[in-house]
Design a protein around this nucleic acid. Structure first.
Lengths: 333, 333
DNA sequence: TTCGTTTTTGCAACCGGTTGCAAAAAGCTA
DNA sequence: TAGCTTTTTGCAACCGGTTGCAAAAACGAA
């Protein structure tokens, strides 16, 4: 059983308020009082109960961190950045795994029971309704890796997925391919839809080039591999823009399995530039998504919202860029 | 601002206790009262404040999930299993990232401020002092993937790392190698020490076989790759037991880089059998660590401890087994 | 219908803190 | 040293719940 304020007060021979004040910064306490209380606290090994104080202050410093894809290694990087960034600001992440959860209300209720100060939805595949549900419940929310609507209802930090689609198309066109393909992530994810849109738009400028399209069931290795194995049975394209990196790696695995080689037989460009894509035995050409900036910006936004809950929603969009590696042929000079 | 108990009580025209009771199971409430209160609660959109109730019950249902390696993909699997398993039991994981944290006291203080009901230390590299510090603070603790001491001070769930070392040695010996090597993880991790011990012990039975040893700085791709590149400049062994899977993959990358091939020039066996090792373009021969069982058992143990805090500490050890894949030559028939 | 039992309900105190307010102490000026 | 300000301190109420206890209500038996 932990030491309480009252015990410290008794030992120091002062009132409970005095103890409370020495532990709240900005409160008025004399130097003499402070040292006396701190001494007693140290001797007793006291540290204040954050949850009890939240009752009166209305602040728990708890932030819900909501995600749904625990099979995509990029989220390990995302969790690392979020946990450290939040910790550095004295906030604590309450991790929520929404795999298999379809009802936003459910998660809202759960996080509200814990009076989280805010919620970060970190996912490009969760429908916008989740972020909205939190907003409607009066909880500050940031949707990281979400879609930047033109009239955003919630704060969004991420990238312009339509533009990345165009970028990928241009990268493939630069190779002179005559048949390219879009192999997207799950159809209902806004990120997939936007990347698809941009890709198709850009390809419309090249009516002579054949374009095929398909979609994997998830942003995962297995889904990418399965879909590609299917495609390879038919008439595969020369170059593929894959939904994301982990999906790309699944695709690479399928290509290798069929005895084909990348980039000689088939070229691949992914999206994310996760750590693994840099590994020399993967060496994936991909579009860099600045996740560090996105996460840090999300955290800053969250912190700002804690002081200003009705802050006007904004979209923060970070530019991406192609990282040339080994899964597309070298560019002609 | 959320609805409170009091408001529900007023609307239903009953006492606050009555409302409280309808939301605590096992409490005595008449059917009539229950429906009346539930109606009012529904209309107001009330859900009880878990933190406030924790004040009197002494239970927050918050579990600290402590880890320090966010660069090893296996931990994404571990987080997935933990978050889901805890959620299923009505518990909530408070994620703590201990990268760069050297002082156990610090993390203890932090988690105590949030009155977590228990702590799971999920790491094979954190020194036992961390788990001990929690225990000494009177917080139920399970060390998952920790070392099973003969006189355990805290609950440990994991594998017999010494035995895995022996296993790996036998697997390499079965290939008839005359020069094998141990390429461990960080020297100060108990898991590294134990795997090393077992490996050396088993190799002592083969005095004719040359044995070399080295250690990478972390269980990470980069560390494995760096160390292997260094080793390859000298006189490499024929077969390597690598600290874990992600390290193995780093090693594979180094091998490929030097124009060598695996398993023809050099054989590799890892440890963990993480999802990625099954990927066809990695196809790592490795020792399977039953992480699903370990995680679930850890959770069960934690749940048991919540009811029985002074439960006598036990070690739960799960057997491992070699998974034959593509990075060791096929076994002679 | 009455009386003893059992169940249901409300009161009030408490969990571990915070905070507005007024009294007490300290500081300053003359 | 008196008189006025400013700072420090303690009191007491409150945050949103829970719970032991006793009163009230419902039940059952005679």
């Amino acid at each position: 059983m932990p030491v309480t304020l009252k015990e410290v007060a008794e030992r120091a021979g002062v009132s409970r308020s005095a103890v409370s004040r020495t532990f709240t910064d900005g409160a008025s306490v004399s130097e003499k009082m402070r040292t006396k209380v701190e001494k007693a606290a140290r001797e007793l090994g006291y540290s204040p109960n954050a949850l009890a104080s939240s009752l009166t202050t209305g602040r728990t410093k708890l932030i819900g961190l909501v995600s749904n894809n625990f099979h995509n290694p990029i989220f390990l990087e995302v969790f690392d950045l979020f946990t450290r960034g939040l910790q550095d600001r004295g906030l604590r992440p309450l991790l929520v795994n929404l795999t298999d959860e379809r009802d936003p209300e459910n998660s809202v209720r759960m996080l509200r029971q814990y009076s989280v100060d805010g919620v970060v939805v970190a996912s490009s595949t969760l429908p916008p309704e989740f972020a909205l549900a939190f907003r409607d419940a009066g909880v500050p929310v940031v949707h990281s890796f979400g879609r930047a609507s033109s009239s955003p209802k919630v704060h969004v930090v991420g990238i312009d997925n339509v533009e990345t689609g165009r970028m990928a198309a241009r990268a493939l066109m630069a190779r002179g391919y005559k048949h390219v393909a879009f192999l997207g992530g799950p159809r209902d994810a806004t990120s997939t839809q936007d990347r698809h849109k941009g890709f198709v738009e850009e390809m419309a400028l090249h009516p002579d080039v054949r374009l095929t399209e398909s979609f994997a069931k998830a942003y995962s290795h297995e889904a990418g591999r399965k879909e590609m194995l299917r495609l390879l049975d038919d008439q595969p394209a020369e170059g593929y823009f894959c939904g994301d990196d982990v999906l790309s790696i699944g695709v690479l695995s399928a290509i290798k399995d069929k005895g084909l080689s990348c980039p000689d037989d088939i070229g691949i460009i992914g999206l994310n530039d996760m750590e693994m894509s840099r590994w020399e035995n993967i060496d994936l050409t991909t579009i860099h998504q600045p996740i560090k900036q996105i996460v840090n910006s999300s955290i800053e936004l969250m912190v700002a919202m804690l002081d200003e809950p009705d802050r006007y929603p904004e979209a923060r969009i970070f530019p991406c860029s192609v990282v040339e590696r080994g899964t597309l042929p070298e560019l002609p000079a």
